[in-house]
């Protein structure tokens, strides 16, 4: 994508975020949690973006293995990195919330734990990439890893859920239903996240293609 388009996207994302913040400030505090409850509007869309990123990485990885086009590989890295960044945002916002409400930074809540395991899995993806020098081999090996990681995500999710239901645990969000206006807020806040994610992906893909070009030139030089 061209630079002006990216700049416009960043601008729109920024404006939306500012608008959402202003709206959030108007919302009344939640009865039980107070002001900190607003973190959910960042916490939840971050998780959605992260999982969307990991899912996109799965699709791109399969496409790479089928078609052999390195553009899919570049896309897979880009969305995985975006997924990791938003996954980290999700984890950190969850921890801040937990600190406010429960007085502890970390609790082995099934959702937090699952996200942490996912995060570790996909950070493995990035480390694996660093260990492979040849671009085509790197693409192949990491595509296979991405497929394995994604297959593991739902399994991790369910197993941790079962595991934790057999142990006492604090209840998140009270288990009650959320006000529809809150749902709107969640989705409205998701849009700037997605826009930012797209901008990152576009930039990272351009970097990856430049990296491939440099690598090819280096190989050419070695061959002479």
């Amino acid at each position: 994508m061209r630079k002006p388009v990216l700049l416009v996207m960043i601008g729109v994302a920024g404006l939306l975020l500012v608008r959402n913040l202003l709206v959030m400030a108007q919302l009344p505090d939640e009865v039980m949690q107070g002001a900190i409850f607003r973190i959910i509007f960042f916490h939840v869309p971050a998780a959605w973006t992260a999982f969307l990123g990991f899912f996109a990485a799965l699709v791109a990885s399969i496409l790479y293995l089928v078609r052999g086009n390195l553009k899919f590989d570049a896309f897979a890295v880009a969305v995985t990195e975006v997924g990791l960044a938003f996954g980290a945002a999700n984890l950190i916002s969850g921890m801040i919330w937990g600190r406010e409400i429960w007085g502890i930074w970390w609790t082995w809540d099934p959702r937090l734990t699952s996200m942490l395991v996912c995060w570790l899995l996909y950070s493995g993806y990035l480390m694996l990439r660093r260990a492979v020098e040849e671009p085509t081999q790197r693409a192949r090996v990491s595509a296979v890893f991405s497929i394995f990681a994604f297959a593991d995500v739902p399994i991790v999710w369910f197993s941790i859920k079962w595991w934790r239901t057999q142990h006492p645990q604090p209840v998140v969000w009270g288990g009650g239903s959320m006000d529809p206006s809150y749902w709107n807020m969640l989705f409205l806040n998701w849009i700037p996240f997605l826009l930012l994610g797209l901008v990152f992906v576009a930039i990272r893909m351009r970097q990856e293609s430049a990296k491939r070009e440099i690598d090819a030139i280096r190989r050419m030089a070695h061959a002479i």
Partner: peptide, 17 residues
Amino acid sequence: LMLPMLVYPLMIPCLMA
């Protein structure tokens, strides 16, 4: 170094069971 780092997170569900 790579093998345990990549493999343990994947094995978590199996180990849990």
